[in-house]
Amino acid sequence: MPRWGMVIDLDRCIGCGACVVACQAENNVPINTEDVYHQRRAIEWIRLERYWDGEYPDIKARYIPVPCMHCQNAPCEPVCPVYATYHTSEGINMQVYNRCIGTRYCSVNCQWHVRFFNFWEPKWPDSLKNQLNPNVTVRSRGVMEKCTFCIQRIVKAEHQAKLEGRDLRADEFTTACAQACPTDAIVFGDLDNPNSRVAQLVNSAVNERGYRLLEDLGTEPSVYYLKKVDLEAPVEEHSSHQG
């Protein structure tokens, strides 16, 4: 049984946003209009955060792509009264849209703010509906949605492997964000398969750059980050406060 996970190398990430648009294209994420941004209800299953460090002229802007962490002890899961938020056997934190009744408890309990509520019916002009991915449900009003690690791609690959009577090969498919990423900063795969690139990146002793976001909360995220390399970083340094 695979255990899906992701590694994001902050030293490779250039903040281009290819992952953000690729995810929207793959997963039928509603268009984030200007109004949606004003309401602070933009839906980006993976988003690019930017943090400032320092002051002019010694200032740095740093990027971090943030998808759902797919925590193994996910705080969003136990609070769902209808089991719409649950954990799959393959380690994915999943949302069952047609169970969801929109209590938004899960969203309140998520420290990473990667769960998004559909306050309105998503709208596309008729012609743009031609682009929608037939493998992904369009979420309706009143439903919580989030990154699924491109579950439709996982299911398709697993189905194909089953048809061919074989096990999944290491890295035989990837998520939309990882596939688009021009610098190869995002790597997705099976953490339990020693031949997969994620497992190698996570396990390799060479890579002392690994960490997880808000790891101290003890939720065991499945998304690993590799630290940004900075020539001037103090030996054990954290960059300073700024939102």
Partner: peptide, 16 residues
């Protein structure tokens, strides 16, 4: 609400 907190930095940096 996302902040770089001193004790829980979101973006961690390291020396080469």
């Amino acid at each position: 609400p996302a902040f770089q907190l001193e004790e829980f930095p979101i973006i961690q940096v390291t020396r080469p």
